[in-house]
Amino acid sequence: MSATALLHVQDIGIAFGGLKAVQHFSLRLPAGGLYGLIGPNGAGKTTVFNLLTGVYNPDSGSMRLAATDLMGRKPHEITASGIARTFQNIRLFPNLTVLDNVRLAGQLRSRVGLFGTLARTAEYQHQEDDLTRKALDLLSIFEMQDRADELADSLSYGHQRRLEILRALATDPRVLLLDEPAAGLNPQEKLALAKSIRAIRDRFQVAVLLIEHDMGLVMDICERITVLDHGVTICEGPPKHVQNDPKVIAAYLGGGG
């Protein structure tokens, strides 16, 4: 494990009323790391993602991305600082085209204001052309360029999942959070997904944090794994270590409850 973490999370937690959804969650994700987050249903995995992306604000603890303090930030500010995510239940913009789903990321770093947009200044045109080119490049990397003009809604399930990942990459993230990317895929598709997650990590130089129920996939590609149960971290370490931890086995099989 590298000494300096890109994403440094210490003891964050949140309670909804009396329900402590996540407690004392810590994570040190190094640049280029590929980590996993697992746990039974309702363990709080997605809540952790929601905390990391500012959907919820942690009650306690600290979060930093490199030198940027993430505590109390709004979701769009966190995205701007370099954390992108996908959703467990796909959340594309159904009535926008595939291209526009991706191009939307351009507004993050837009240098053209309302006036420039409405007057269609040369700078605005230049920026829009740039954006379109970048989005088409990204689509072609994922072999989706010929679907650029289709509505996101009309894509097949697999393509929607793929589009969601590449849309997140369009924001130029340093950390990519994937929430169950393999859900609903068949074994061959999962194999291909495993390969492409590694490839994405290498090509886009992002650190990846993965929530996944498919143990084979997680054990195969993740360097370190954090196991949550009832909002508490019960185990953390390399796949081998996690696999043999009796607490993890108990959490999944219900033994020792």
Binding site: F87, F93, L104, G106, V112, L114, E128
Partner: peptide
């Protein structure tokens, strides 16, 4: 425009829009 796409993304899905960096 980019600005308009940001507005439309709010209509389509506020949570996803925020995740894409849109200040809703």
């Amino acid at each position: 425009s980019s600005l308009g796409r940001a507005m439309i993304s709010v209509r389509e899905d506020e949570i996803a829009a925020q995740a894409m960096g849109v200040n809703i």
